[in-house]
């Protein structure tokens, strides 16, 4: 849905950069590194077992025992936040990996063959575009049951057209340049020229698109878990944590829902800002 706006994003972000200077980018990068490290070492970092709920200690406020309090089942929010980073980040990572690889393959193929192959593929991508990723994920759950496997696969398909279109457009431009013809004349195979020579030149822009996609995939998967259709209890997950804290919100104690919500927004904002910057720098738009 929103990834088309990636090109438009650039101006406000550049604006932010000039006003905030390099510190904003550095803070975001630091936050991302922190979250990745936390996800990697989650079992050793979480002070308590987030799946263990003490009945007597539901909805406790922040304190020495529970740094960020507990939810209404008595689960430690801080530990759930840490362990939940694994599922919350692994899902979108898979979506982005699969959709980027598939999108590159389809985009290059369409650009290289051109003609009717290109037209047919373009039309098919238009059809996939009509299916919003979250809707495809919900349909996948309806068909295959709850959990993350089916939605992740379905969303990989739903996100693929963004990359495929971008790659096709870029590859078309690159193809017109003389170095491609030079390689072809030297007798290199189309596959070699496309993958080894052309792809590295368009890589940075594709990477920037993928990092923007990562943010949106994270939002979609968190929304799915929020709806109770994705990650299932007792596995900790940010979206599922918000879902399970709905009753606590109504009782005026929203902390156990606000904590994972803030985590989601922080990661997505950080990913967008760092993604744009890395993309710009790799593409040589910024020194």
């Amino acid at each position: 849905m929103s990834a088309q706006m990636a090109g438009v994003t650039r101006k406000p972000i550049a604006k932010l950069r000039s006003m905030g200077g390099g510190w904003l980018e550095k803070v975001c990068l630091g936050l991302l590194v922190l979250f990745v490290l936390v996800a990697l070492f989650a079992p050793w970092l979480s002070p308590q077992d987030p799946t263990y709920g003490e009945l007597g200690t539901g909805l406790v406020g922040p304190g020495a025992d529970h740094w960020l309090g507990t939810d209404q089942g008595g689960h430690d929010t801080f530990s759930a936040l840490i362990e939940g980073s694994r599922t919350s980040l692994a899902g979108p990572l898979l979506v982005v990996l699969v959709s980027t690889v598939a999108g590159i393959a389809i985009g290059l193929f369409a650009a290289w063959r051109g003609g009717w192959v290109d037209t047919v593929l373009g039309r098919l991508l238009d059809v996939v575009f009509a299916f919003p990723a979250l809707l495809v994920a919900i349909l996948a759950v309806a068909v295959f049951g709850k959990g993350m496997t089916a939605p992740v696969i379905a969303m990989s398909v739903a996100y693929m057209p963004y990359t495929a279109r971008l790659v096709r457009g870029l590859a078309m431009q690159e193809q017109a340049r003389p170095y491609i013809a030079a390689y072809r004349v030297q007798g290199h195979s189309a596959l070699y020229v496309a993958v080894r020579r052309l792809l590295p030149n368009i890589g940075p822009t594709v990477l920037a698109q993928s990092s923007v996609n990562f943010g949106y995939a994270l939002l979609d998967l968190a929304a799915l878990s929020f709806l109770g259709l994705g990650v299932q209890a007792p596995t900790p997950d940010w979206g599922a944590m918000i879902n399970q804290s709905q009753a606590a919100v109504l009782r005026g104690q929203p902390l156990s829902a606000v904590v994972p919500a803030v985590a989601v927004v922080v990661v997505v904002v950080a990913f967008n800002i760092v993604g744009e910057n890395v993309g710009d720098r790799l593409a040589g738009r910024k020194t």
Binding site: A222, A223, V249, A257, V268, V269, I273
Partner: peptide
Amino acid sequence: MLLVTVGAAAPAFVAALLLRS
């Protein structure tokens, strides 16, 4: 622009949660 950057990353379920509470 800061609001826009945060707003674009604030999903409906987070906005709903905050507004509601």
